[in-house]
Simulated scan of single mutants.
Amino acid sequence: MPGKIALVASTAPAAQEAEAELRPLYDFVDLAEADMLIALGGDGFLLQTLHQMLDQRRTLPVFGMNRGTIGFLMNEFRVENLLDRVGVARPFLIHPLQGDITTVSGERHILPAINEISLLRETRQAAKLEVLINERQMLEELACDGVLVATPAGSTAYNLSANGPILPLGSDLLALTPISPFRPRRWRGALVPESTRIRFNIREAAKRPVSAVADQREIRDIKTVLITSDRSRPLTLLFDPDHGLDERIAMEQFIV
């Protein structure tokens, strides 16, 4: 059986209504006392909740229930038998990315990302990026609208929209995917081990400004970004046994 459970909900009307239904039926505790967390909302709210836990350096297992739009990372919302569902839920570990970002002005930012870290041009001019893998130059100059690095959990989000590959959960791989590449024309991205250090240096950064976005957080006018996998702070998502995250990701490969 689960331990002490906290409940959080997004501000969306559907999530607020669901919270009002659940609170009288179960003995929820304050977040500071909880052993696990139930989150009501959509994928964006779940990512926001996970980021807050990373910022506070206190990560709890999260059982999300969809009261948003897509809910790819969520379970179906049901009021009944909630404790039984949580008690038999399957855990999945997610290792976030870490972006070590330096701006043109010399500011340094360390940002986590659960889905992806993307570099995007800020103006009408193409970005020009040097790409290094484990400090070895692999592309001297990538001219593009941008590029992203995605985790398996995030590979079905922005990465898939940019024609990147779907990565099975547990594959220990990262997807390196260009966004509208212009040169070199034939480069369509790469799969790299999760332990890889991926560095992007921005060429002509003043003339061709680039921003870095870690999930929902943006840093503008960047000079260099080092992306690594942070295995020191794993996140745990809980899913109903008949609808796990690994199965959802696998099924995405057959949706046309």
Rank of each mutant, 00 (worst) to 15 (best):
S105F: 08
D30L: 07
I117Q: 10
A89G: 01
L142W: 08
M1L: 12
K128P: 00
R108S: 10
M138D: 09
Q125H: 15
I198H: 10
I117Y: 03
V8S: 13
L142R: 04
R217G: 04
L237S: 10
A20T: 13
E194D: 10
N81L: 02
R233F: 11
Q253T: 07
V131I: 15
V86F: 10
A14L: 15
R231H: 03
A18K: 11
P152F: 03
L174F: 02
T49P: 06
G41K: 00
F182Q: 04
D242T: 13
I5T: 12
R67A: 05
S155H: 11
F239Q: 02
G68S: 12
L60T: 03
E247N: 04
G41L: 02
C144F: 08
R217S: 08
G154N: 06
D215G: 04
L82Q: 10
S10W: 06
E76W: 03
S232I: 05
A32H: 13
Q56R: 00
T224H: 00
P209Q: 14
F77G: 14
I110L: 14
L139N: 11
K128S: 08
G244E: 02
I198G: 07
M53R: 09
S10D: 06
I114W: 03
D221S: 15
Y26V: 02
A18S: 01
F92C: 14
S155R: 07
A9I: 04
M251V: 07
R233K: 15
E247S: 11
L176R: 05
F45A: 09
G170Y: 07
V79R: 10
E21L: 15
T224V: 12
E19L: 01
V256G: 10
I114V: 15
Q98S: 12
D27E: 13
S171V: 13
P152M: 03
R57L: 05
M1G: 14
L169V: 14
L176M: 06
F77C: 07
A32C: 13
S180W: 06
M65F: 08
A89S: 01
G3H: 09
E247W: 08
V210Q: 00
P178S: 04
L132K: 14
R58G: 00
L93T: 14
D30C: 06
A127W: 10
R85S: 14
T102N: 10
